[in-house]
Design a protein around this nucleic acid. Structure first.
Length: 230
DNA sequence: GCGACAG
DNA sequence: ATCTTGTCGC
């Protein structure tokens, strides 16, 4: 059955999962940052097997875009729920390095943090690899049960009962899933993201970066070369 | 065996 | 994520 999943045949799923279990041990769920002045945010869009990854640098709390970089690559890993980091993280990391790892205090990633089967969603993966504070913001749930606790909806591990993240109600009743990536607590991650909700259902940095990745995909690879560019 | 399933 | 028509709501 050599059908359409050509990339799947090249993937060692068990090896990837073992690596996640290793990295998960290095996740820190305590606030390991001081004052937040700069925030990095990453997202990507695709055109065929080409990925357009954008990393934006924003001031905080003003949320002004100060700089952004674009990375264009060929994808080498298929999308498999739970293994998203192996598909997208390499490009995000490359973009963040170009942005300057010392230029931001925390990074926001489009995807989950510890709200993941092995507690290592893409946000945690990136946070551990770069040894930086990170937060995962997802539009849909991947893992966990939603349980109301003290006026808030927590994402809880169905097997251990551990809290993994929080559901954040934003605009027009829309909800997003916030979970710690690394070096931050569930509550701090939630509060920080909540303060970044402006006029969209996504936190402003994510909305802006998402928009840029789509521009890049539509033959506008110079989006980061403009006023806010390098 | 049957759902669930980030982007 | 991407593709993709018509439809619903502000």
């Amino acid at each position: 059955m050599f059908k359409s999943h050509r990339l799947n045949a090249r993937v060692d799923v068990n090896k990837a999962k073992r690596l996640q279990l290793m990295l998960a041990k290095k996740v820190i769920l305590e606030d390991k940052y001081n004052v937040i002045r700069k925030i990095a945010c990453v997202d990507a869009s695709y055109k065929g097997d080409t990925v357009y990854a954008v990393a934006g640098l924003f001031s905080y709390p003003s949320l002004k875009l100060e700089k952004c970089v674009l990375v264009v690559d060929k994808v080498t890993f298929p999308y498999i729920p739970g293994l998203l980091a192996f598909r997208e993280a390499p490009h995000y990391i490359k973009a963040l390095i170009k942005l300057g790892l010392n230029n931001f205090d925390i990074v926001i990633v489009d995807g989950h943090g510890i709200a993941h089967p092995r507690r290592l969603g893409i946000a945690s993966h990136i946070g551990v690899v770069l040894r930086k504070p990170s937060i995962g913001v997802a539009k849909r749930k991947l893992y966990g049960k939603i349980i109301p606790i003290n006026d808030k909806e927590y994402i809880v591990d169905p097997s251990t009962g551990e809290k993994l993240g929080l559901v954040l109600a934003t605009i027009r009743g829309r909800k997003i899933f916030v979970s710690p990536g690394n070096m931050i607590s569930i509550e701090s991650a939630y509060m920080l993201i909540k303060r970044m909700i402006k006029k969209h259902y996504l936190p402003e940095p994510l909305y802006v970066v998402d928009k840029m990745t789509k521009q890049a995909r539509n033959n506008r690879e110079d989006i980061c070369g403009g006023p806010a560019g390098i």
